[in-house]
Amino acid sequence: MFCYAPINYINLMPQTENMAEKYKFLQHTADAKFQAFGKTLGEAFANAALAMFAVMFDPADVKPKIEREIKTEGKDEKALLYNWLEELLYLLDTEGFLLSRVKKITIKGKVLEAVVAGDLVANGYKTHGDVKAVTYNEMDIKKEKDKVIAQVVVDI
């Protein structure tokens, strides 16, 4: 399956009732659980990335100063989602990279390629909480007509 959803396209989408919500957080005793929405798998994955970082800061507050390219693989869609989010945590831990937006995301079979924009935490950003890891716990990728819902629980 080939999915292509450049984020600027998403941003330009009219905020109709179906598109207004990029993600929502659900009740969970200990960890952070969210559902991310998109018309395509790529868009849902991009919104899952925004949701994960929203645990620690508001991506909308981060300037898209620097870009990073991500390429990852996964043996199934859940593994791909897990690995994609983990790549972003890797950038956070190794460079202090805070995500502002996903500029481009392409999912082709088992391979995901993306370009993300953001800034370094050292440039004066306030953060809170911590995402320690992505988990497979209650992970779900649901495909409905014109809608993909990606559910993730992250360890905090």
Partner: peptide
């Protein structure tokens, strides 16, 4: 992050080797 990555790495490697079909939770 070091410990978190160790956990993730070995979860993946164990999945590849043993599969997770019979597990109620991955």
């Amino acid at each position: 992050g070091l410990g978190h990555q160790v956990a993730s790495d070995y979860i993946k490697e164990m999945e590849d080797k043993y599969g997770f079909k019979d597990l109620p939770d991955r």
